[in-house]
Computed example of a mutant assay.
Amino acid sequence: MAKADKKEIRRREIVAAAQAVAARDGAEGATLRAIAAEAGMAANAVLYYFGSHADIIAAAVQASSGRFLEKLAEAVDQSMTPTARLAAVISAGTTAGLDDDVSRILYEYWPHMLRDPEQRRIQDELTRAQEGVYREIIDAGTRSGEFAPLLDPAKIARTLVAQEDGLVMDVLAGSAGSEYVLDLMGSLAAALLGLEAETLLDLIAARGVPAAAT
């Protein structure tokens, strides 16, 4: 059992090294040699813990995806009204990972899903989970009478996630600021759900904007 524990600890260290290199040097820079050097290991030693470089990258992206979803969960208190929960998720979904490397890592590897089935599986699972978070809130708000959706709730959830994904990429690229993105996301959600935009935007603004990682 102790041996297994040590192996798992080492695997986590390698994953953390892969995340650090990808965030600093990009997906192309996260080679097996670079990850091994970051972890303070020889490349062949790294492969004792993971079968291949692709396995390491998949584990790093999966870990980043998991942390992103944790941040969404941490932002929401089930005692909140649906409108307040919507504001919390918009705020978290748009800024989660900007105060560390989570979002940057996910976006570094997003194009890889075009050719890599494992990366596609991870990204698809993340998207479905994000949609599920929005869908639950939309359904609750509809039941309570706070929301009057203009489209099928599943379509609204998918639209919000897609918009969020594109806008966060703009923030990471430096072509948009978080405040602008939050305003746009809040305005879109309010329009689709029959909410007063000012009410939702005030709740979003009250949560503040975390500083982006440098």
Rank of each mutant, 00 (worst) to 15 (best):
D152T: 13
P153E: 12
P153D: 11
A154N: 13
A154D: 11
A154S: 10
K155M: 05
K155R: 10
K155G: 07
K155T: 12
I156D: 03
A157Q: 05
A157G: 04
R158H: 14
R158E: 09
R158L: 09
R158S: 08
T159G: 14
T159E: 06
L160W: 00
L160H: 04
V161N: 00
Q163I: 01
Q163N: 07
E164D: 10
G166F: 06
L167T: 02
L167Q: 03
M169D: 07
M169S: 12
M169V: 15
D170M: 13
V171P: 04
V171M: 12
A173D: 07
A173E: 12
G174E: 11
G174K: 06
G174C: 04
G174Q: 10
A176K: 01
A176Q: 05
A176Y: 02
A176E: 02
G177Y: 13
G177R: 07
G177T: 12
S178L: 12
S178R: 08
S178W: 15
S178C: 08
S178H: 09
E179A: 08
E179F: 05
E179T: 09
E179S: 03
E179V: 12
E179L: 06
Y180W: 13
V181L: 15
L182N: 03
L182Y: 00
D183W: 07
L184D: 11
L184V: 11
M185R: 02
M185G: 00
G186E: 14
G186W: 15
S187P: 12
S187G: 15
L188S: 04
L188E: 02
L188Y: 03
A189R: 01
A189C: 06
A190F: 15
A191K: 08
A191M: 15
L192N: 01
G194C: 05
G194Y: 06
G194F: 08
G194R: 12
L195N: 11
L195K: 06
L195M: 13
L195V: 09
E196R: 07
E198D: 13
T199D: 14
T199S: 04
L200F: 03
L200G: 00
L200A: 03
L201D: 02
L201V: 15
D202K: 11
D202H: 13
D202P: 10
D202M: 09
L203S: 14
L203D: 11
L203Y: 05
I204P: 00
I204S: 03
A205V: 05
A206S: 11
G208L: 08
V209K: 13
V209W: 05
P210I: 03
